[in-house]
Design a binder for these strands. Structure first.
Length: 485
DNA sequence: ATGTCC
């Protein structure tokens, strides 16, 4: 059997692309990494594997702790990590969800082709950059008041439909219909609300972006057709999260959970994994608050979509409906959700923690929207400004092997600090421009931090997901215009 | 990711 050593940890390749850390010591379950050997070598370079093993200590964790092929280290728990934890007698861990709650991505389609856009790239990127708030700090598509913020927290995209920022098909093309009914805005800390109120409809910074792209390759014609995608079509990707609201909320609950549940904390190998026992007041309060932040992030992406449709109307001189600007789908990357999964032959309610991982439900599962029920949900996997991105389809094996999950992107290869040492923003921008990719950012440092070279090979991440049958490759898209913080 | 340290 092939083995792989990382520090004092030995992984065994139990089948192609599946590396297992056997259960030993205080581990409650084994851990598994989904990776090719070359991806595993990259994953092994930071604390990812150690963090994954630490996660197996969480009370109530079922089956195994998982790391997707794009995994890298995060706060306490890998980005690219998935854990299914018993919702009745397990726990919920904010670190296994992430600071940027419902960081996620959506794809908006158009009926434009690359030729329609040719020669207007500069005009379009300028107009988008001008119209869509980005970068650190405040300022959003709308200046929310208390009532609007609370409504957004409570009802997500449903509120956007009522207010005219969304149409009903936007709602039905989001994971969970863009709306977590378990949201409790009253348990969102006031300071988090204060930070979020003037950030409604803003990209933020870091790896968040809006990108205009063209469909470059179609790998699965029937599924592409079911998704309404075809070669040379112009599409738009919007990647952002819950801004300061999610970050503040996570910070405050982590502090409270560490304090109130120090006994549980003492059983864990890393303080950053702090968790609230299922059924405790804090678990309930945090879950409701997290659901509200999830709704907030969906509103955020919807408001940006609304503004993007206006920009396209201005640039192309037609109503957005005539430009075919429908939502393909919106997926969440950083969430926990009560889902029922098979555990030892028993349907069991779990808090499925996905941190930098995408739900990838296959055909037939009731959560998949009507429009895609017969093929499986769309999974959007952003690559980099250079390498392009993918649309996949929830795979037939995902429920058996990954709690219905797959990768969420290319995954970082190096830290932001290291990226800024390796790359210079203007050079990256010029090089991309030569390849007919138009990038505009608030800060040159952000372009350096997001240079194509800081990411793993997205083709390889997608290949591994496909070969595992957790997601099927549908199309590949290439960047045209990109705006970011 | 994040008013990158209240």
């Amino acid at each position: 059997m092939t083995t792989f050593e990382v520090g004092d940890i030995t992984l065994r390749e139990i089948r192609e692309h599946v590396w297992e850390i056997p259960k030993e010591g205080d581990m409650r379950v084994p851990a598994r990494v989904f990776a090719s050997e070359s991806l595993l070598e990259e994953i092994a370079e930071d604390k990812t594997i150690q963090q994954l093993r630490n996660a197996t200590h969480l009370p109530g964790i079922k089956k195994y702790a998982l790391c997707m092929p794009d995994g890298h280290q995060g706060y306490g728990f890998p980005v690219g990590g998935v854990a299914g934890i018993d919702a009745e007698d397990g726990c919920i861990s904010p670190g296994a969800i992430g600071y940027d709650i419902n960081c996620g991505i959506r794809m908006v389609k158009t009926n434009l082709t690359y030729d329609d856009l040719n020669g207007r790239e500069e005009k379009l990127v300028d107009a988008l950059f001008e119209a869509i708030p980005s970068g650190l700090g405040g300022g959003g598509v709308i200046e929310g008041d208390h009532g609007e913020l609370d409504a957004a927290l409570e009802r997500g995209v449903e509120w956007c439909v009522e207010e005219g920022y969304a149409v009903e098909s936007d709602q039905s093309h989001c994971e969970d219909n863009g709306f977590r009914a378990d949201a409790t805005p009253e348990t969102v800390p006031q300071k988090a609300k204060d930070r979020g109120q003037n950030q409604m409809g803003s990209l933020g910074s870091g790896n968040h972006f809006l990108e205009v792209q063209r469909v470059a390759d179609v790998f699965d014609e029937p599924i592409a057709e079911a998704y309404g995608l075809h070669a040379d079509q112009v599409v738009i990707l919007i990647h952002c999260g819950s801004r300061g609201l999610g970050h503040q909320l996570c910070t405050e609950y982590l502090r409270e959970i560490e304090k109130a549940h120090s006994g549980l904390l003492a059983q864990l190998p890393d303080r950053e994994l702090a968790a609230a026992p299922a059924g405790s007041q804090l678990a309930e309060d945090y879950y409701g608050a997290m659901c509200a932040a999830i709704n907030f992030a969906w509103v955020n992406r919807q408001l940006i979509t609304h503004r993007t449709r206006s920009v396209f109307e201005d640039v192309f001189g037609e109503p957005w409906e005539d430009l075919g600007m429908e939502l393909l789908y919106d997926v969440a990357h950083n969430i926990a959700k009560k889902e029922v999964h098979d555990v030892d032959g028993e349907p069991t309610e779990l808090y499925v923690h996905r941190k930098g991982a995408t739900r990838a439900f296959p055909a037939g599962r009731p959560e998949v929207p009507d429009a895609y029920r017969n093929v499986g949900q769309p999974v959007i996997v952003p690559g980099s400004m250079g390498a392009g991105s993918y649309v996949l389809c929830g795979g037939e094996n995902s429920l058996d092997v990954s709690f219905g999950s797959t990768a969420h992107g290319a995954g970082r290869l190096m830290s932001r600090t290291q990226a800024k040492r390796e790359f210079w923003g203007e050079d990256v921008q010029d090089e991309l421009r030569r390849r007919k990719v138009y990038v505009k950012a608030q800060s040159g440092a952000t372009i350096a931090e997001e240079a194509p070279g800081v990411y793993k090979d997205v083709d390889e991440v997608v290949r591994v997901s496909d070969e595992l049958g957790i997601a099927r490759t549908v199309v590949r898209v290439e960047p045209i215009c990109n705006i970011k913080g």
